[in-house]
Amino acid sequence: MLRISNASVFFEGRQRKEIHALDRVSLDISEGDFVVALGASGCGKSTLLNAIAGFLPLTEGSITLNGRPVGGPGADRGVVFQKDTLLPWSTVIDNVALGLKFAGVSRKERHEKAAELLGLVGLADFARSFPHELSGGMRQRVGIARALATEPDILLMDEPFGALDSLTREQMQELLISVWHRTGKRIFFITHSIEEALFLGTKVIVMSPRPGRVVARYDLDFVRRFIETQDVRSIHLSPEFANLREEIRDILHSDHHLAGAAA
């Protein structure tokens, strides 16, 4: 169980002015959860992810993983970044095996594990390729396989599909659902796309800027429905989906206006 309680973050901005990036956010991520944080830029969702990953200390509050407070970054929390962070000098399989190399796993063993994960993300044939030979979507799949290699307790994904075209993005969403379903990993996923959040999340937290905070929470089952039916269109076209989409859009927009007026 990953437990975030009353997490607040203040940054030092320009002219020593404090920026209130995150305001008393509490969240539990249990076994099998697919939690999506949804919001416009500046709503603190990346701050929250960075705090969970250990890249950023909290000002107040706490984050514990299986009862232990999280310190710096570690292999128990796998991160998939929006920006491509693969090593250009390593082959795809060596990139996937990087975390295992850090852990001191033998070359043979880590390549076996990496090959298995490449199969999971559908890139078995590209093990010996270099990252620059792959498309953006394929590179993100390598990133997912790499983050899974060290068998983390949770996968943290920072707008991983934000830079992809919409067709690739849909394919990646389906791939991620199948990875989640087959590995049973908890996922904390960040996006600014309402439809992506609704489609993927079992829990969605809607966040709002200045200060970054959670303004609405939803428990959803569209993703489970997709796993049963494999039918994206009927989900996207269902009235529940459309209603929720409009509801969340209203929340995000009204908040945006308020924030605009205050600033």
Binding site: P73, R77, F81, T85, K101, F102, R146, A147, T150
Partner: peptide
């Protein structure tokens, strides 16, 4: 060296000397 690349390595469990040698 980009912050993201260094962070990615750290979250894969890189110790400081591994970060230096491999990244």
């Amino acid at each position: 060296v980009s912050v993201e690349r260094a962070n990615a390595a750290k979250s894969l469990g890189a110790k400081p000397w591994q970060l230096f040698i491999h990244i």
